[in-house]
Design a binder for these strands. Structure first.
Ligand SMILES: [Mn+2]
Ligand SMILES: [Mn+2]
Ligand SMILES: [Zn+2]
Ligand SMILES: [Zn+2]
Lengths: 146, 146
DNA sequence: ATGGTACATGCAATTAATTGCAACTACATT
DNA sequence: AATGTAGTTGCAATTAATTGCATGTACCAT
């Protein structure tokens, strides 16, 4: 059973429809690896189906985010990015506000945080894909030398 | 020495200027408590000085954020909100994606996370003001009953 | 297969935020 | 106090994202 079929099932069982537009958006998310902007996805879909509207892309991404099939993240570049969650498994990013370097952060750090919050407040956090800003080791050392 | 004077000093020593517009924006942040939108701040300043432009507000908020005097947070309401960091001290928020309830989260949780990240990667995260989305205890129990 | 309906789409209009640029000004230096 | 300049402002234009609405369609139930 293809992953596309799985997703279609999730859509249907949650009261959504598997439209051609959505299938194309799903394909774009699947093919493109990593973080994609809405405009990039829009461009991909347009190749096949020029009548698609950017609002359909945003609305579909909204649905997929609600279903937690994609993550939506501001990586500090102005454009919000979307990532198919199964691509990399759960992970997060450290982004240096000085040199803009982006690195990955293992999910375990946030898993622990989530468990603590859950245990003490009953609130179950979605810790799908965080962008954590700060200063990287290199830039910090550089700054200290001055 | 007033807090306004402190801020002016911070601005000057970091190569920025203390313009009348900025002082009015600072006053708006200081008076208004809690999370303010750029439009709300804009409105406040306009009362006193109608010629101010919204771009000046955004640019000033950008500077103040860089200096970590205000936090910038998407609370899930469509408009980004800004908060004068000294108002509440460091704190964070848990936001239920089902009922939209917003609660506070003590900084300690994130302090610990930050220390761990710092120790293991050398990256020093800014953990000023997080909005953590998820499902609150009440909504979770409600969902389980169905 | 057909029909009814809740959901989705495309389009246009709107809102939020950003950016380029020429004119202006705060303020450090003299 | 006068000067030079880096940084700031207002304005207009742009871009990113959202929303209202009339039309269209997926898909469940028959
Ligand atoms: Mn990622
Ligand atoms: Mn807050
Ligand atoms: Zn760096
Ligand atoms: Zn709730």
């Amino acid at each position: 059973m293809s992953c596309e079929t799985d997703t279609v099932k999730v859509l249907r069982t949650t009261g959504h429809k598997a439209t051609p537009q959505r299938l194309m958006i799903l394909a774009a998310l699947r093919h493109g690896s990593g973080h994609l902007t809405a405009t990039e996805i829009f461009g991909e879909v347009q190749v096949e189906y020029p009548y698609v509207d950017i609002s359909t892309v945003y609305r579909t991404l909204g649905v997929l985010k609600e279903l937690r099939l994609v993550s939506e993240t501001d990586m500090g570049t102005g454009d919000t990015t979307y990532e198919w969650v199964q691509h990399q498994g759960r992970h997060h990013h450290l982004i240096c506000r000085n040199c803009d370097e982006v690195t990955s952060l293992d999910h375990q750090y946030l898993e622990d945080l989530g468990a603590e919050i859950m245990a003490e407040s009953g609130f179950k956090p979605d810790l799908d894909h965080f962008a954590i800003f700060g200063v990287c080791a290199r830039c910090r050392l550089e700054a200290e030398r001055n």
